[in-house]
Nucleic acid binder design. Structure first.
Length: 336
DNA sequence: CGGTTTTGACCAGCGC
DNA sequence: GCGCTGGTCAAAACCG
């Protein structure tokens, strides 16, 4: 796995709630893409309808390489894409350091993207190649024969590397709702971190998507979520407790470009809609900043910010940061 | 009662 | 070869 591409993004989506209350007014969400140093350089841009939702991405509507491409990274391969490569091991040391979500992150981040990915890498790569070989087509595959004892494991074929990507979210809730249903199948203590890592698998049959969730030990308010694989099914229409459990659907039916794709799959649809990030990428690695953009959402559309607060403990002013986790490139629709 | 979570054990890859 | 660590399994506990 170490060779597997993993890109981690850290983003702050700031909702200026000063604007939110009054209906008809406009709510502004400032998305701030930044690597862990937390520095920021605003690059205000309007949302472009040509983005792709996180969900879509998860469903496989977007090919992984495109992510790399959209990030301005070498499109070719996952290897390249995974700047982790070089950082593979570094992650181990203080490595996770990056995780700090920019808060206390020291000046260890040398580059925007790579630093972030290294971070993801830290988390990820830790997994080493394990899952690759271990991921039985799904435990079902190995069936009950199971692990112990019998050598059924030998038969495990090396599974194709699943595209993975990670992102950080500022939230008190470890397992963020993303529209899909997950079943937790494991939890492990993570080296160098007081916080355990939880493993989830999509409960939909034949969907082998997995995700790992762990809290950054450097910045406990930050949750690192790593998705592996792509959903081969639509987002469950009715989730227990309802979509996202926190945002009732027509939550954000903005009249802005965002609305173009903001469907009923809330939160992720909101959180994960990203603008063309070709424009967002700031290759200036010295600033550790990728960039940011602002999108406006017509609050008259009923954005329940209260729930936002409740669910994510949004910060009182403009640090409604939790919405922060998005993977910019993922939502980008590749232009033909 | 069915689905989910918890948790200890097991397995495999990697570094020393 | 050994120990460490991450990832997964599956029985038991838990929950609605």
């Amino acid at each position: 796995m170490s060779d597997e591409p993993v890109e981690l993004f850290y983003q702050d989506l700031v909702l200026d709630h000063n604007q939110q209350a009054s209906s008809g007014s406009t709510m502004y969400c400032e998305k701030q893409f930044s690597s862990f140093a937390g520095s920021s350089a605003y690059d205000t841009k309007a949302f472009d309808p040509s983005y792709m939702s996180f969900t879509e991405c998860l469903q496989g509507n977007m090919d992984y390489d495109s992510l790399a491409t959209s990030f301005g990274l070498s499109p070719s391969s996952s290897e390249v894409f995974s700047s982790i490569e070089g950082n593979q091991k570094p992650a181990e040391a203080g490595d996770l350091g990056g995780v700090g979500g920019g808060s206390d992150a020291p000046g260890t981040h040398n580059s925007s993207i790579s630093s972030s990915s290294s971070e993801a890498g830290a988390e990820e790569d830790s997994g080493k190649s394990k899952s690759d070989s271990q991921v039985k087509g799904d435990q079902e595959g190995s069936g009950g024969s199971s692990k112990k004892g019998n050598g059924s494991k030998k038969k495990r074929e090396k599974k194709e590397k699943e595209p993975r990507f990670a992102f950080m979210t500022r939230s008190e809730v470890d397992h963020l709702e993303d529209g899909y249903r997950w079943r937790k199948y494991g939890q492990k203590a993570v080296k160098n971190s007081p916080y355990p890592r939880s493993y989830y698998r999509c409960t939909t049959q034949k969907c082998g998507v997995k995700k790992r969730v762990e809290r950054s030990f450097q910045d406990p308010t930050t949750v690192i979520t790593t998705y592996e694989g792509q959903h081969n099914h639509p987002v469950p229409t009715s989730l227990r407790g309802n979509t996202a459990g926190m945002f009732t659907p027509p939550l954000l039916t903005a009249s802005t470009p965002l609305s173009a794709t903001v469907g009923s799959n809330f939160p992720q649809e909101l959180f994960f809609h990203m603008p063309q990030h070709h424009n967002l990428i700031n290759t200036n690695t010295q600033t550790n900043t990728i960039s940011s953009s602002r999108l406006s959402i017509d609050s008259s559309q009923n954005l329940n910010t209260t729930s936002l607060h409740q669910q994510y403990q949004l910060l009182p002013h403009y640090d409604y940061g939790l919405l922060q986790d998005m993977v910019p490139s993922m939502f980008l629709k590749q232009e033909p």
